[in-house]
């Protein structure tokens, strides 16, 4: 706990709805260690998605700071923050948010277009990412030709293809049936354990939260409970492979 990957310090986030001022986060402090898999839970309006957005650098706090390693992302410029996100953040959304006119391959390739990698190198990275999520044979399929679970796995491949520091997942199983949700959770767990990815996940689903190593509960913008979970399930992890610098080690 000495050198947290993410340090949220006295974060306050207020929104204005007409003349009314809404305080969504109220002086919240949170540390997240490198390699953690943390679940944020709480009722609607508790501020969990707002906290996720602030950690991901897609929103700015009213006051307070978010440090990722040594970077104070709350004080970065708009373009600096965009560049930082491209290197450090992988997003997984509830509704997948794939680009419908692009194939699975092209969707996964999107974040790599922002890197100096050449076409051949990009191809290699995309193929490995799709292999990890088990969709190497669906590269040329469009989102409309995939099931919900497959779409979410493509979205996960897109999130990991640049080997980001942090994976941000906002209700990643919220739109999935039980079987697909389980597959996605197993995959996230594998990314955390096998590839040492730090994951911050917002969820309403206790089953999904149970996969995390730590559970944080929020209510009315305040952190009310932190639980370190024991005995999260292991998932038959495979031998080490290297993906975009993601080192895979057996537990």
């Amino acid at each position: 706990m000495n050198n947290p990957l993410i340090r949220v310090e006295k974060i306050v986030k207020k929104y204005h709805r007409g003349a009314e001022e809404l305080t969504v986060l109220n002086g919240l402090n949170l540390n997240i260690e490198d390699g953690e898999f943390i679940a944020l839970m709480g009722p609607s309006g508790s501020g969990k998605t707002t906290l996720l957005n602030l950690i991901a650098g897609i929103d700015r706090p009213t006051s307070g700071h978010v440090f990722v390693r040594t970077d104070d992302i709350s004080s970065m410029s708009e373009s600096g923050l965009a560049e930082w996100r491209s290197r450090h953040i992988g997003f997984i959304f509830q509704t997948y948010n794939l680009i419908p006119v692009l194939t699975a391959y092209e969707n996964v390739e999107l974040p790599l277009l922002l890197t100096p990698l050449g076409g051949a190198e990009r191809r290699k990275h995309v193929e490995i990412a799709l292999y990890i999520v088990g969709l190497a044979d669906r590269m040329s399929h469009y989102p409309s030709q995939l099931s919900g679970g497959q779409e979410q796995r493509v979205a996960i491949a897109r999130a990991i293809v640049t080997d980001p520091t942090l994976l941000i997942a906002d209700e990643p199983t919220g739109d999935l049936d039980a079987k697909s949700a389980e597959e996605v959770l197993v995959l996230l767990e594998r990314l955390n354990i096998e590839f040492k990815k730090t994951i911050v996940m917002v969820t309403h689903d206790p089953k999904a939260a149970a996969r995390a190593r730590r559970l944080v509960r929020l209510e009315k913008g305040i952190l009310i409970e932190e639980n370190h979970m024991d005995g999260h399930s292991s998932s038959g992890l495979t031998d080490g492979i290297n993906v975009s610098g993601i080192s895979a080690k057996s537990e």
Binding site: A56, A82, E83, R85, S86, N97, I99, P111, L114, R158
Partner: peptide, 13 residues
């Protein structure tokens, strides 16, 4: 929504 997703991926304004 798609444009917002592109920006989360790191596409600048």
């Amino acid at each position: 929504r798609e444009i917002a997703v592109l920006r989360t991926l790191g596409f600048t304004r």
